[in-house]
Design a protein around this nucleic acid. Structure first.
Lengths: 295, 295
DNA sequence: GAAAAGCTGTATCAGAAATTTCAAGATCTG
DNA sequence: CAGATCTTGAAATTTCTGATACAGCTTTTC
């Protein structure tokens, strides 16, 4: 299970007094279930979660106060105040040293696989942003913010999930939003209604899927505006697309990474939500209200 | 307890909340002698001096405890705990968002929005990786690599798409993989078959969805192993989950970002694919072959 | 399948910490 | 310089937090 090797040896920072966080990560296996809860909470809000009271910490971790006490005792502290004192000490040391800036805590030879994978994905995101034409992004935001237009999301085998993700958000922000399944049989009869007013947002990356291309071509022929989120090699849909947003997708895996596409999607959602805030807000509140009623 | 800070409602682009330190400097003249001593101590060791006990603070400042209390009351806090809470909040905001500082403002539409959004997402990814216990990640990989187990993916309103994304990949890598729709009506009859051999991989973030929780609880009660991908505040599913992988989700948007969850998902897919390569490879080739035949 | 071991939460307690009281001292004012 | 006002700390008080004992429950082991 030790996929050693990989790259990821960019650890510039010196030994650094082994942070408590690191020790917790290493000992994680040996913890009891509720200790793990405590550990997760602490790590996810390191170290601030630990600076509250025992009761608060317990409540946030979903465990009882005594379990928290047992947790800190197990870590070798004589009591909760002792534990807090240590955390404050670490915090002070970290904050006052101008070097320890880089990240909250990227120490530890973390999960090799996960860390190097993340590194690659982050690189993809940066490359994606760098290569998007601002005007293109803005134009798409504008397009998706037009309330008179009907928006259709679609995608291929894997990217269909992203289309669904986009649709489930846009559906709340505005009206006239829907999702088109990938299988031709399912859209053959719906596509005839697509016309000049419609916008197709298609997700399509490598191993481009013919049925998605066919859908977009048909729609474009009928006058619809096609927006394409794809990889840098551009899906054939690009030929009929009005706007193309490419994302880098290569990762140290047998599969491509869709993180860049998700980034673009979420950025679009954020931008359009802000753009349509006056109408989106009441819609979001209405959804919230329905949720609460149901429970 | 509903002081700001607790929840993830980080303001998007504040004009920099005037730090308490600054205010103290301005009001310094109006302080009494002992208040000045308190102020000097706090400023010279900002904000750590204030995180100790009243007694400690008083002793270090060379004044009495009541003077310290009067000092913080004068600053507008309802008591010493309130004062400390504020300090912790400032500290957390300052430490956790070294990026949020740099960008002047994302007022303009288009590219700036995309760039700053990307920055925040990248920060999330780094924080997510930093806080995942390698052992926990490894354990999940191991679990999902066990060919004898049945794997079920599920998620909520928005995260369901991620579950679908995971499922569509795992389905190719290995057998016994399926997707469970969110609505209880759809799984009520399927869940009875879930037992000791089954693994539920649930995606659930803020605005935790009750039906997903119910599904996991039922499954857990029947002996299934639950793996949870959630946010740092942990979905209630964490109570019954064997493994929890939290991802940071706060973004400069009205919506949360799922990029961290996607990162974890893809990393899991990559790791399991590698782990099961001997059996995964022929499966992937078979899928490829089918694709080609169809065209 | 029964016994043992281990975990966890409830109830409770002890003690520490924050807060208030009050009177002594310092400072200001006329 | 006397009275008024403000400032301050010792001590009393109250609140709350961290700690513990114990019993129920789960998991493990034989």
């Amino acid at each position: 299970m030790n996929q050693s090797g990989m790259r990821g040896d960019r650890r510039i920072s010196p030994p650094d007094p082994p942070s408590l966080a690191e020790r917790i990560r290493l000992e994680m296996d040996a913890f009891t279930p509720s200790e793990k809860r405590a550990a997760h909470l602490l790590l996810s809000h390191y170290p601030f979660a630990g600076l509250d009271t025992v009761a608060e910490f317990a409540s946030r971790a979903g465990i009882s106060a005594p379990s928290v006490l047992r947790f800190v005792t197990r870590l070798g502290f004589s009591g909760f105040p002792d534990f807090q004192k240590h955390l404050r000490g670490e915090l002070e040391a970290q904050l006052l040293s101008p070097l320890a800036k880089s990240g909250p805590s990227d120490k530890g030879q973390g999960a090799p696989a996960l860390a190097s994978f993340a590194e690659a994905v982050i690189g993809n995101l940066q490359a994606t942003v760098a290569n998007i034409a601002p005007a293109e992004f803005g134009a798409v935001v504008e397009l998706l913010s037009d309330p008179r237009r009907q928006i259709h999301f679609t995608g291929g085998r894997f990217t269909g999930a992203l289309a669904r993700y986009a649709e489930s958000h846009f559906r709340i922000v505005r009206s006239h939003v829907n999702f088109i399944e990938g299988q031709p049989a399912l859209w053959r009869d719906r596509v005839i209604e697509i016309g000049r007013r419609d916008v197709i947002v298609a997700f399509d990356i490598r191993r481009y899927q013919e049925d998605v291309t066919a859908l977009c071509e048909t729609a474009a022929r009928q006058g619809a505006t096609v927006v394409l989120l794809t990889d840098p090699w551009l899906s054939p849909i690009a030929r009929v697309a009005r706007h193309v947003l490419p994302a880098h997708i290569v990762a140290p895996s047998n599969w491509d990474s869709s993180a860049g596409l998700l980034l673009l999607t979420e950025a679009l959602i954020a931008a359009v939500t802000k753009r349509l805030w006056d109408t989106a807000k009441p819609r979001m509140e209405a959804v919230e209200r329905l949720r609460n009623e149901r429970s």
